[in-house]
């Protein structure tokens, strides 16, 4: 996406705060959890991406779930029962897609990682201890039946080797409340018997949830919570406890909630000035003082709303 011939990020207060926290934590301690919350369109995901980029430059291994809502929506998805554990369900395509995403994000960082135990896929296929992690990922991408289990293997190896090899693992999950809340009646995943599947019955979610619990070290977890993945009746507030529910809160507790507010006056102005500078706002009125004020008023300084308002100018 090169609309502006460059990819820019606005450095905002929450991301600076979060980066400073991550710099100061002791990696020998159980993973610390940070939860970004804020109104829809306030830039939670952007802040998360900013922090993720900072950590990427700092040689962290990135475990990134771009939008957890994708995993829980039954948009005509193929669902198979897990061969590893009956009663669990796999989403092969999503698992493979995530493995590809993971491989792409961590190019050149996985060379030294090898499995520490043996994994048996079928009677004939198995991965010996000492198989490179990249091989496991490629196996999951080609034999997508096992992709969800491969995700589990990759995550487990990362958790184990983070401590022994001194890796730094950055776990970023967008809309983490999708793992804990009940799903929409229409969009929910259903198994072959049309029975509603609970979040914890999904292999991939089960595996990602292990990354969230403070049972491993040398890592940090950054999540966002958003209203969008909740049912339509449960979108009244944007606060973490409301969105996560009691179960989700207790799973992440104690975490550090970080508010991502809407733009301040200065931030909104610099955003609009950037749009003017890039010729995104071409209308003459949009470039005047009054026009800028009007954009800020109409969008209520919400970043996403500013983008939407300016897209037609």
């Amino acid at each position: 996406m090169k609309t502006f011939n460059e990819s820019c990020l606005m450095v905002r207060r929450p991301s600076v705060e979060l980066i400073s926290y991550i710099k100061n934590i002791n990696l020998n301690h159980p993973v610390h959890r940070f939860v970004l919350y804020g109104r829809k369109g306030a830039g939670k995901t952007c802040v998360m991406n900013h922090v993720m980029h900072a950590c990427y430059r700092d040689n962290w291994i990135i475990v990134h779930v771009p939008w957890a809502g994708r995993l829980v929506r039954g948009w005509k998805k193929e669902i198979t029962e897990s061969s590893y554990k009956p009663g669990r369900y796999d989403v092969p395509a999503d698992g493979a897609a995530w493995l590809a995403h993971f491989l792409h994000q961590n190019q050149g960082k996985l060379k030294d990682l090898k499995t520490t135990s043996e994994y048996v896929w079928t009677k004939r296929e198995k991965a010996e201890a000492g198989t490179p992690l990249e091989e496991i990922i490629n196996f999951g991408m080609t034999r997508i039946k096992f992709s969800s289990d491969c995700v589990g293997v990759v995550l487990k190896e990362l958790r184990q080797q983070a401590q022994t090899k001194g890796l730094k693992v950055f776990v970023a999950i967008s809309s983490v409340n999708a793992f804990f809340v009940e799903w929409d009646h229409v969009n929910t995943l259903r198994n072959a018997e049309k029975k509603k599947i609970e979040p914890e019955e999904m292999t991939i979610i089960h595996n990602f949830k292990k990354m969230l619990s403070p049972t491993w070290t040398h890592g940090v977890v950054v999540c966002t919570v958003s209203e969008v993945v909740n049912m339509e009746t449960q979108r009244e507030k944007y606060t973490p406890l409301y969105l996560l529910g009691k179960e989700g809160f207790e799973f992440l507790d104690p975490f550090v909630p970080i508010l991502v507010p809407e733009y301040s006056e200065k931030e909104a102005l610099s955003n609009i000035d950037y749009y003017i500078d890039r010729n995104w706002i071409q209308h003459d009125y949009g470039k005047t003082e009054e026009g800028k004020k009007e954009i800020m008023f109409v969008s209520n300084k919400n970043p996403f709303n500013i983008y939407r308002v300016c897209s037609s100018l």
Binding site: V16, S20, N24, I25, P254
Partner: peptide
């Protein structure tokens, strides 16, 4: 305070 997480507080 509980976990002694420090940073530049905004």
């Amino acid at each position: 305070k509980l976990l002694n997480i420090q940073g530049e507080v905004s």
